[in-house]
Design a protein around this nucleic acid. Structure first.
Length: 108
RNA sequence: GGAGUACGCCGGGUGACCGGGGCGCCAUAAAACGGCGCUCAGGAAAGUCCGGGCUUCAUAGGGCAGGGUGCAGGAUAACGUCCUGUCGAGGUGACUCGAAGGAAAGUGCCACAGAAACAUACCGCCUCAGAAGUAUUGCAAAGUGGUUUGGGGGCCCCGGCGGCUUUGCCGCUGGGGGGCGUGCAGGCGCGAAGCGCCGUAACGCCUUUAAAAGAAACGGGGUCCCCAAAAUGCAUUUGCAUUUUGGGGUAAGGGUGAAAUCGUGAGGUAAGAGCUCACGGAGCGCUGCGGUGACGCGGGCUCGGGUAAACCCCACCUGAAGCAAGACCGCUCGAACGAACGGAUGGCCCGUCCAACGAGCAACGUCGCACCGAGGCGCUCGGCAACGCGCGCCCCAGAGAGAUGGUCAUCGCCCACGUAGGUGGGUACAGAAUCCGGCUUACAGGCGUACUCCGCUG
RNA sequence: GCGCCCGUAGCGUAGCUGGAUAACGCACAGCCCUCCGAAGGCUGGGAUCGGGGGUUCGAAUCCCUCCGGGCGCG
């Protein structure tokens, strides 16, 4: 089982973007909220816009971010999270993306 | 061996770790969590250019309008797709390409040039009629006056440069060759018309070299004279003899144009003409034979443009909207018994039909929809083929904002470096959303079969 | 899912219907004007008409196809 659930509502995306704590790296922008009660799972949304590439590259990037998050959130910190890919994230290596995301989550 | 043509196919493999969607079964009171099993993108899933299935519009009928298609026959659920042929074009060839009906229904358009662009005669040729007529007419040449243009020279004015004896004076202010273009006249050719060729003066542009000079400036205007040319006027001299007007015939020749009455040769004629003949070409809503047909072969007849991806005519097809289509599961209120009105109806009309409904609230569910289907694979048979009949086997993605994977290793392939071991880099185009059949477009690399041409060898 | 529009000089637009000159404004360059600049005046250069193919004697215009950009409806 995945260690997080998906954000689905348009309003959740907008609320996180407006009120969440923001931190950005070279390839990513991350918004996160305060911790949820510990018995619930994390809620994660991933945004990969059309300016990044065609459908194949966008799918590839989304799957890589999903795999990293699944590995990173193993500690069970429950929160709301929004990960937005910046335009050159499709060219980044997998190790760089993982390092950026883990350090950003640890700093927050 | 090289170059090609057609058809078909593939479009990464293996392993390890981690992680998902759907369905079924087990477990559980049930769900969640969990366990087991099966399954999980492409040849284009793309563009959305066509066609159909399906659903709703009560029915989907006729006409008009609109849209589409356009050689023939066939295939198909259907098509603008496919197959086999016909004709035309291209290629040495295998073969490829073609919006390929009608200009003999009507309308429009065909710039410029040209006499004329669809019904016509500018010149020329022929014929008929009239007029002038043997020089008081016409043409040509020579002479001459004025005008215009160009060139050369003299004088003057205004600048510029240099020198000197500096209120000024003197001198100078530019010569030639080559190439290209425009090209008055003139010459030559075609009897003429017009066109072509040669080409002087002059003008414009480009270029080069040399001379002269100590160096520089590298101008403009007015007037007079001389020379050349042009068109025109005048009268004189010389030479020659036909000239002119109108009607008609003629599409052979000239030239324009993308396109000009079939091409070449001969006969024929007043001159000419497919008027006739030979060879060749084109057309026919004429005919015989062959073919289902497009069409082909032969005979006969005729030789007046193009454009329909201009309007149009002919033949055939076409109701509209689209899975956010739509169906099902509630509650409340209102209208309503009769059809005029009205509505179904969509661009319009006719025809046909209707006793149905409308609003609000709640829910955002289930179905459609995850598939036994124009389904896939294999074989036999029929057919040249597209394809079809039959038999056997198989069940083969799927929705919730969206699963179909992430990382690493290794093999294969490609590129670069290197003799090599090897090292480094790369591995295309591209992601289902109601489902099928096509078309078009993108694509690293590779495989198979058949055939063609060229070269070499036997 | 359905429907529609646009692409012409560095920029913004005409021309397209109905086929035959690619035009205008700003910008750019040179000259004039001015002590200098702006404004103004004169002159000039600059266009694969989005790409390809076709019809035609002739295509920016007509037809087909592809590419890019934008808009609307549910």
């Amino acid at each position: 089982m995945r260690r997080f659930a998906a954000l689905s509502r348009q309003a959740d995306f907008a609320r996180l973007r407006r009120h969440g704590r923001r931190s950005s790296t070279k390839h990513l922008v991350i918004y996160r909220s305060d911790s949820l009660p510990s018995d619930s799972r994390a809620l994660v949304g991933i945004t990969v816009s059309k300016s990044i590439g065609k459908a194949v590259t966008r799918n590839k990037l989304r799957r890589r971010l999903t795999a990293i998050l699944d590995e990173t959130l193993a500690h069970g910190i429950a929160m709301r999270l929004l990960v937005i890919a910046r335009p050159d994230a499709a060219l980044a290596a997998f190790g760089d993306l993982r390092a950026e995301l883990t350090s950003a989550l640890r700093a927050a």
